[in-house]
């Protein structure tokens, strides 16, 4: 896809996010809006996938894992827009009986979801296991894992961060949605993450940085990481993002981490986001 086409998809995804969390008056709009560009680029430009024939083992396909499961509206919208399930199903988000649970789960049989996430810090380990399964299978496709920055505070992340380079897992690309905010406030205040780049480098990773809301930079960085896969190097992208990106009053604050907009706020937000693919 061209950069402009990707931007159009991202705009529609952001509309979906606002409408989903507004519709059920719950969910996490801030992080969802911030990570939209990265995951749009993955699903609509980078990953080799077959959305119409979803398989649990993803043999021969690139696979994506969302570790910070609370930004599920973003993932659901992208999966639906990419053809994994009907777009109209987005209207069921967080409602009784839905396949679109508050946090992603494979239990309800939603195509595109392979493991539950939501309890933080676990996705990187799972993604590494999948990557090692691909190696055992002689499958050269890649595994991508998006994590939050707040979740870097979980100990398990660093167990996986130590394991992956030590075991030469080079068919996985980790990405941190680095928006510098978490529920209680700025990460600097809640738990200073320090120099994440230096930390990962000292664990043996090749670290890239990009503006995670600049589609060209995202695609360029992902292209580099794809080209460098299977070369004995574990790779991670620090994607600097803005929580709430695309909706002016949701940006620059952590307050929209887990708060849905009211009717007026939702209308205001939607007026800032171009409808490009048709609302569900």
């Amino acid at each position: 896809m061209t950069i402009n086409e990707l931007k159009d998809v991202a705009s529609q995804v952001r509309r979906d996010i606002i409408r989903m969390v507004h519709g059920c008056q719950s969910g996490h709009p801030g992080g969802s809006l911030g990570a939209t560009d990265i995951v749009t680029a993955l699903y609509f430009d980078q990953m080799h996938i077959d959305p119409k024939h979803f398989t649990m083992d993803g043999a021969g396909e690139d696979m994506f894992f969302l570790s910070n499961g609370h930004i599920s509206p973003m993932l659901y919208s992208i999966l639906a827009r990419r053809g994994y399930f009907p777009v109209k199903e987005l209207a069921t988000f967080r409602r009784l009986g839905t396949r679109l649970q508050g946090h992603p789960t494979p239990v309800e049989g939603l195509p595109g979801i392979r493991v539950a996430s939501g309890s933080l810090g676990q996705g990187l380990s799972v993604a590494a296991g999948v990557a090692q399964a691909k190696k055992l299978n002689g499958d050269n496709s890649l595994v991508f894992c998006l994590m939050g920055d707040g979740e870097q505070e979980e100990g398990q992340i660093w167990e996986a961060a130590m394991y992956i380079p030590a075991k030469n897992v080079d068919n996985l690309v980790a990405i941190i949605d680095y928006n510098k905010k978490q529920i209680d406030g700025p990460t600097d205040e809640v738990m200073n993450l320090g120099d994440l780049k230096a930390k990962y480098e000292s664990f043996g990773w090749k670290v890239y940085e990009c503006n995670g809301n600049d589609m060209q930079q995202i695609v360029d960085t992902l292209n580099v990481s794809r080209a460098n896969a299977h070369k004995g190097q574990s790779q991670i992208i620090l994607a600097h993002t803005e929580m709430g990106m695309g909706v002016d009053f949701m940006m620059g604050t952590h307050k929209w981490h887990g708060t849905p907009p009211n009717d007026e706020q939702a209308a205001n937000a939607l007026s800032q986001l171009k409808e490009t693919l048709g609302d569900y």
């Binding site: 993803g58 392979r114 493991v115 296991g129 999948v130 090692q132 055992l136 299978n137 398990q156 394991y163």
Partner: peptide, 25 residues
């Protein structure tokens, strides 16, 4: 080739196992 020494990191081990199971193991 089918044995994974994960070090003293049980949480990571369970995640890895879930991933290997997703991959058909």
């Amino acid at each position: 080739e089918r044995f994974f020494q994960v070090g003293i990191a049980e949480a990571n081990m369970v995640g890895l196992a879930a991933g290997l199971a997703i991959g058909g193991y």
